[in-house]
Design a protein around this nucleic acid. Sequence first.
DNA 1: GTCACATCGTCGT
DNA 2: CGATGTGAC
Length: 835
Amino acid sequence: MGITGLIPFLEKASSKCHLRDLRGQCVAIDSYCWLHKGAFSCADKLVRGEPTDLHIQYCLKYVNVLLSHDIKPILVFDGRHLPAKAMTEAKRRESRDSSRKRAAELLREGRTEEARSFLRRCVDITHEMALQLIQECRKRNVDCVVAPYEADAQLAYLNKKGIAQTVITEDSDLMLFGCSQVLFKLDLTGTGLLIRSDKLHLAMGCKEQKYTFDKFRYMCILSGCDYLDSLPGIGLAKARKFVLTTEETDIKRALAKIPAYLNMRNLVVSEEYKIEFLKADATFKHMIVYDPTERKQTRLNDPEELGTDLEYCSNAGSFIDEEMAMDLALGNVNPFSLKKLDNWHPDNQSCRPTGGQTSSWNQSAITKHPSIWKPNYQQKHRSQVKPDVREDLAIRNIFTLQEPKRPAPNPEFETTERDESIDDVLQAYGIKQTDQPPLKKLCLTLANQGQQQLSSINSVDFQLLNDMECLERSPLKSQSRRNPFQITSTSISSNGNRRTTGERNALLSPTKLTSDNTSLLNNVSPVKRNEFNSSKPLQTTQTTNLGGSGKFDKLSRFKRTIVSKDGQKVISRFFSSSSSHSANKSLDDAVSSTEAIDNKALDSTKLNESNDPDATTVYLLSPEAKLHHRGDKTPKKQLFHHNPQQNDEVCSPPPPSKKESAVEPVDSGFVDEPEGGFSSSQKENETTNLENGTESNKKSKSSRLQLFARKESSQLGTKSLDLTDNFETQGHKETSPVGSSTTSLQDDVIEIDEDSMPDNGTGKNIESEFTRQGHSREQPLLKATATQPQQKLPKCTASASCRRLGLSKNKKSADIGPTQSKLSMFGFQKKMQLK
DNA sequence: GTCACATCGTCGT
DNA sequence: CGATGTGAC
């Protein structure tokens, strides 16, 4: 049950967070949450015992999203039930049984819809499901741990030990176990609510000096927790009042004073309650957990260290023998029966990851994260405590075991890496220093020859050059045999829409990622980057400093916005109304359908249908968003129309939407791009490609479009240019997707002449904008053609989005205006208006 | 204002 | 599991 009302109570200790803010970290996940949510998609099958892996795939989507943000996930699963929770579990089982019976009755009566709702309520997350997910994770080299008892304590232990810097869960109990920071309400777009324990005093409403974590925990237990019901009439508010009022340090004596402090004369604090309170407290502090690096069970905190009488630890679990404990932690045994189900062992050579393969993932995926099960993991990877993507945590290439890809930008570099030598930096990025001079020379030459020449050089490289110069490091020496930044690969097949596996691999290979360079070194020297951005017209990143404060954290939350011409409407992805729920199939349909739908076949059909040279479209969705909105009927996708006469063969176009005249809020990705985050964008594309190879074309096109936008922004004046040749392969026909493009460099604004776009007057135009340096001027940056129903817009409200984030509707940002307030809330807000 | 309790949604398309 | 609404005190 958690602590009722705790998350809203902790509002002041919480902040909206995007996974990009956790880049480079190791994160421990309460996998039950994902499995439980995922089980909703196939509840009837699970209840009936029919084979399905939809819930597993749902979890893997989350794993994928984490990987795409350079985050090492550790999936943690519940183990045995604590004696203290036996009652709760019995009640749940009872409830599930009655739901099942009710569902069966309704089914017999033919009331299938009602039956369905009861079927959902009786889904139990079994260890077999957990094992199914664990096995998929093993294939991908994603670590999993089954807790001896509750996952909560295990998560807290991984956090306490420094193995995981953040914990992801939906259960507010995690805060009581002492996690330093917990991410709640994570969605597939990567946004969540981060609560930090060092801010808890703000939520408690007391001075930092007066605050102790013990007080917080006492408050929560008093208000009622899993291990102890609250005294009647005591909730969070009264418990808070009490723990802040009493000066009594001995909690047992303090408890006796509750009625007096709270003016509740009728309240009786029994001796039994006091003991149960101390037991509950000890359960939170000393629950048995598993240490994967030591390979043994231990307690979350040492009772001796905290002066806790072991007598009170009776509800905190008991130890089991070492070998069984290991098997339990690995997931090999059923936690309750201890029956052996699997025989996986990290030391066993035959248990190496083979790569993921599911019905919708037709690419293998093996992360290169070091496993926590490797001996001396913590000694070897101590730097994990300090986020550092370069050595330990980078997902170098989750597709293959090829050479590492240069890691995505890490905001942490701003503070931690600035003093490194350029050699170190370049090496860290897998760039040989000898690779640099020709590029540098070329850039300088071209720069000297004037702006016109720059159309033939990747402006991203110019940015890199500048950053290198800004670093003022020792001159680089010899000539390179290979320029890692040069545009080499052939990303587009001549048939335009379909790539062979080889072509796809080429597209995904590290050397292909020329666009990664966008801002690699920007992150090394953001200050210099800013200087560069403001002083030179050749601007390739969308870096924006909304507040003009120079604070990089604000920079990192740069917002690319999509605005109307008058800039009135502000619509974020969160304002997008969710797609209307289609009429549910009858339960009979769902449960009796034994013909599995071949998604792959469906997708390929769509792809073929979409192969229409007259209606080339490009998704502007972020890869994360695409995870959500796949398929041509999903409403949140934003289509970008190209002039077919421009011989655009960028990639396979998705089938044009049926209602081209309608417009839907533009979604993310395009606006959600981390600053300079091209590598991450690419990576995300790769990751999402895992799900479905046929998606790769449009996704990579989205990526290129983003680059395209940036490249456009780098051009002065009005100029028509063949952008794609700059970053696509030479020798492949690929012309600018739009005819004439105008840019306004000073405002980082790109304007693509809408007249060049064949929307035939049926589409609505959307203008997007980069705001920069606090400019309030809203300039059109990109006009795109959208295909979504305009009618959905009014549904989108700020309060709805607040609710979604678990924030108070009344929450306001004091120092910024309403628009920027929203911007800061969502990080990647967009403004949009429809004509 | 605070708390207790009941009810609903969680996915997917 | 949390979010939300309602009613009692």
